[in-house]
């Protein structure tokens, strides 16, 4: 068996610190005793997860048999681990279905249980930082990160709105939503009027055709 990379050991230690703080993790790890999950990150790495007592153990992945395999791109698996975006739910995994970009093979119940375990192990970054630099600096750094993130989101939204306003109102390269809606409403009215006109013309044609038949027979 090859040496287990150090980053895997650090990741395992990080996840186990979170699991140790969650009371529900013990029952889950016991339930997964003897079951293994392999995560194949497309073209990057393979990780084998097993449990030992109440702890999660991460090993280098290999071709030996395992109970379940999750495979996907870094982005999709990261989204699944973060619990966002991918739409992979426990029920969907248990039903044997993955989601866009993630394939599940083997025992889907095992895959779903491991996913639940990983969701319990999601790191609290502020707490992790406090282990390195202390509570107060960690709290301030986390607040700074949150404030920066909020500011960036607001700035991006505001910039988008200003750009849209300039293109619509100043340069007139784009039309506004109201103008588009008015235009589409006008198109709808015109189409309906056209439909009505067509119906009247058809009725008129029918009438004229009836008049001609009567005249011919007389």
């Amino acid at each position: 068996m090859p040496a287990t990379p150090l980053w895997l050991a650090s990741l395992e230690a990080l996840l186990n610190r979170q699991l140790a703080m969650r009371s529900e993790s013990a029952a889950l790890t016991q339930r997964l005793s003897g079951k293994s999950l392999q995560v194949d990150v497309d073209g990057v790495t393979r990780i084998r997860a097993v449990t030992a007592g109440t702890r999660l153990v991460l090993l280098p992945g290999d071709d030996s048999p395992c109970d379940a395999v999750l495979s996907g791109t870094v982005k999709n698996l990261a989204q699944m681990a973060a619990g966002v975006g991918s739409g992979v739910t426990r029920d969907r995994l248990a039903g044997g279905g993955g989601s866009a970009g993630i394939q599940v093979r083997g025992d889907a119940e095992v895959a779903a249980a491991y996913r639940e375990l990983l969701s319990l192990a999601r790191p609290d970054w502020e707490e992790e930082l406090s282990r390195l630099v202390g509570d107060l600096p960690a709290h301030r750094a986390a607040r700074l990160a949150r404030d920066t993130s909020t500011w960036l989101r607001r700035a991006a939204r505001s910039m988008g709105e200003n750009l849209a306003e300039y293109l619509q109102e100043e340069s007139r390269d784009l039309v506004g939503r109201t103008e588009v809606e008015e235009f589409l409403h006008g198109v709808d009215e015109l189409r309906e009027a056209g439909d009505r006109l067509e119906a009247r013309l058809q009725r008129l044609e029918l009438k004229l055709a009836g008049t001609d038949r009567h005249a011919g027979t007389a």
Binding site: T4, A9, A52, G53, V57
Partner: peptide, 22 residues
Amino acid sequence: FAQALYHNLSGGIVAVHRGYKL
């Protein structure tokens, strides 16, 4: 020991072996 594994440190000069009692 179950789930035994090892990590190499400093190019294998030192190794950390781990194992669990199940």
